[in-house]
Design a protein around this nucleic acid. Structure first.
Lengths: 230, 230
DNA sequence: TGTGGACGACATGTATACACGTAGTATGCC
DNA sequence: GGCATACTACGTGTATACATGTCGTCCACA
């Protein structure tokens, strides 16, 4: 929830001034987003712009802009003349997200293998970093690396529109990814093995096997979610 | 560019007051969006918030909110401390959009047929309305109905996340859809035939044939685009 | 003459004040 | 006692003023 500035693009923000202080809008975005993810606000609750502004330490204007962005990422719903309503990701939506992920990722794998592109650059390094984080039991780091792993697969395909779509789902997944790993760490070796197998299949440009692996890999998580979430 | 209010959702805006006057933000969104689509502003040009506010007849605040929304739809890029830069959809992006459409639509068709759901409700009516618009040579109406046709296919699949993603591409397509039909009206009968064939394949729950039809249908347009756009 | 820096104009980022619509509450009527 | 209605409080929608960073220009200097 902290690397989401500049709409996910690394547009360099000038570059000369070095690391400029984050804008009020970004701070409001981070603050509200974290609050929703950590469950400070109940689902369906309306957020008070003035109260948020006081909490963040800005005026209403940056808060409003942050809320619009959070709406784009489906964290809140902006009801006209009523305000921003908290919209917690539920099990049904999570299942749909994983289904959408499978659609995009499997298409990416197929096209990558069709063109003989092999595994993305840095794929192995990401796997190793993930396993290292797993040994440290740093689930937060692991979840982020897992996201990066799958995102690099999609980006490797070369379609920026699909990659943007895929990235748009990312914020909604972070919370549940961490939770999934935290509550079922015994599945860690399985996940790691599947990652390595996927890397191998891609390196061999075996699209069909890649899709099969993704199907299994992306099916497990929603099952876990359903198991302890309903 | 006129039915895009409330972030594409028909959230009923209260309902009791009937059709309330559009907000300043919506008017700004429509005005700027139309201006970009009709080519008033050159690619890469920075938009002046004050000037836009004067044109639309509001203050800067609704203009800024409209620009943020236009950024989410990739019509402009918001460069920090510089402003909103016009970002015209180019041929490469258009090709990627059609590829993304194929990925989502073919998945929808497959799942619909797997579950034996048949064609979406109102599918035939949409086809007939499209053909009527074609006879009137009302290309604008045709393009919109075509969008609705394909969107209903995606929605019929039942995955709201994928449907939202799909809808997010819609604004970017409108301009080119109209242009494509306008500049190659002789292809109209082909398009209409393909629509009817797709409807028949879905009604028969023939997923494989539906995908084949979509592959042809969604491949033609980018080819046309490349033909007269570069 | 070309280059570097300082200054001024200007646009965006932010704060705040006002307008308008909605929700909740109290009151009167049936 | 229950329900409809008017009123009040409150929060969003919008406008405007101020703060701050950026870009272009001009001038000094090599």
């Amino acid at each position: 929830m902290s690397d989401q500035r500049n709409s996910g693009k690394d547009s360099g923000n000038g570059g000369t001034t070095g690391k400029s202080r984050p804008s009020a809008r970004d701070r409001a975005y981070d603050w509200i987003g974290s609050a929703i993810l950590t469950g400070v606000y109940a689902e369906g609750q309306f957020l008070d712009e003035v109260a948020l502004a006081q909490e963040v330490g800005t005026s209403r204007t940056p808060v409003r802009e942050a809320l619009h962005r959070l709406q784009a990422e489906r964290f809140v719903e902006l009801v006209p003349r009523r305000g921003a309503q908290v919209r917690v990701v539920n099990a049904k939506e999570m299942k749909e997200i994983y289904q959408a992920r499978f659609v995009i990722e499997s298409d990416a794998a197929l096209r990558i293998c069709e063109r003989g592109r092999g595994a993305p650059a840095g794929f192995t390094e990401l796997i190793e970093a993930m396993e290292a984080a797993g040994r440290r039991r740093d689930w937060n780091e692991m979840a982020q690396l897992d996201q990066a792993f799958h995102a690099s697969l999609v980006r490797h395909q070369g379609n920026a529109v699909l990659a943007e779509m895929y990235d748009a789902m990312r914020p909604r997944q972070v919370r549940l990814s961490v939770r999934t790993i935290t509550e079922a760490p015994e599945r860690l070796p399985v996940i790691e093995r599947e990652h390595r197998e996927l890397a191998a299949a891609l390196a061999a440009n075996d699209g069909e096997r890649s899709v099969d692996l993704l199907k299994v890999h992306l099916r497990e998580v929603p099952e876990l979610v359903r198991a302890f979430s309903e």
